[in-house]
Amino acid sequence: MSFTTSWLGDKEARRVVEILQERLSALNDLHLTLKHIHWNVVGPNFIGVHEMIDPQVTLVRGYADTIAERIATLGGSPRGTAHAIETDRSWDDYSLGRDTAQAHLAALDVVYDGFISTQRAGITETEEIDPVTQDILIGQSAELEKFQWFVRAHLENAAGELTHAGQHTETGAADQAR
């Protein structure tokens, strides 16, 4: 890192940049996953889901920009390439192609579970090191959790039970939701 902030030491800045780089790759991957769903959803609820996804795509793309700019602010060099996504990821590639709205939404719920879990881990880890970064992650999490609520609203019955309850993989959730 050629430039570090005066308010963080080199070690702390490097750690925050590592956390943010993983978040940047996760956001870039989520953006691509959301667009993939947008293009591949079919069935009776097509238009509602198709149109529900676009605002999520726009917001996630903006979040990636915010994270990349924070990395630069801390003296790092944000990597926004496909290779960076592959290198930084600890998750599998999205596994559904053309499929029903219910299948995609159940799979997307699993994606959001993983994304939000790792986002919250970043929130916890940046609390002491850099509360400004933590604040960015918290703000993003609130909207992403709301989007997950939108997704789950399509998958719940009146008692609040999810069609894909107990499933922890995209394909398992999709199969159970169909």
Rank of each mutant, 00 (worst) to 15 (best):
149 W>V: 01
160 G>D: 13
169 T>L: 00
144 L>D: 00
109 D>V: 13
143 E>H: 07
42 V>P: 00
58 T>Y: 14
168 H>Y: 15
61 R>H: 08
123 I>C: 08
6 S>M: 14
3 F>V: 14
132 V>W: 00
67 I>A: 13
140 Q>V: 05
17 V>W: 00
153 A>I: 08
125 E>P: 00
50 H>D: 08
172 G>L: 01
57 V>S: 06
144 L>T: 11
67 I>R: 00
98 R>G: 07
148 Q>G: 09
86 E>Y: 15
69 E>M: 09
123 I>K: 00
8 L>I: 08
125 E>A: 09
59 L>E: 07
26 A>C: 05
27 L>Y: 07
152 R>L: 04
27 L>H: 10
140 Q>R: 08
94 Y>H: 11
8 L>F: 05
130 D>Q: 14
31 H>W: 06
55 P>M: 10
159 A>N: 06
92 D>T: 07
79 R>E: 04
134 Q>C: 08
5 T>R: 08
74 L>K: 05
48 G>C: 11
48 G>E: 15
13 A>Y: 00
53 I>P: 04
103 A>C: 07
177 A>G: 10
77 S>W: 04
60 V>R: 03
69 E>Q: 12
10 D>E: 13
104 H>F: 01
96 L>Q: 10
139 G>P: 02
171 T>K: 15
153 A>N: 12
86 E>D: 12
10 D>N: 14
120 R>H: 08
133 T>N: 06
29 D>W: 15
85 I>W: 15
20 L>N: 04
14 R>I: 07
61 R>E: 13
15 R>H: 14
142 A>M: 03
19 I>N: 00
116 I>R: 12
16 V>T: 11
37 I>D: 00
4 T>I: 14
124 T>K: 11
18 E>M: 05
137 L>H: 13
22 E>P: 00
28 N>E: 02
41 V>L: 09
111 V>T: 01
80 G>N: 11
4 T>D: 04
38 H>R: 11
89 R>H: 02
3 F>G: 15
148 Q>L: 02
109 D>R: 15
33 T>V: 12
71 I>F: 05
172 G>C: 03
65 D>I: 05
117 S>N: 08
10 D>P: 15
44 P>G: 15
20 L>V: 04
80 G>E: 08
11 K>C: 08
141 S>C: 08
105 L>T: 11
178 R>E: 06
42 V>I: 12
123 I>A: 01
167 Q>P: 07
42 V>Y: 15
13 A>P: 02
33 T>C: 10
128 E>R: 09
12 E>G: 12
78 P>M: 04
35 K>Q: 10
16 V>N: 01
130 D>Y: 15
11 K>Y: 04
70 R>M: 11
69 E>Y: 06
50 H>G: 13
149 W>K: 09
49 V>G: 06
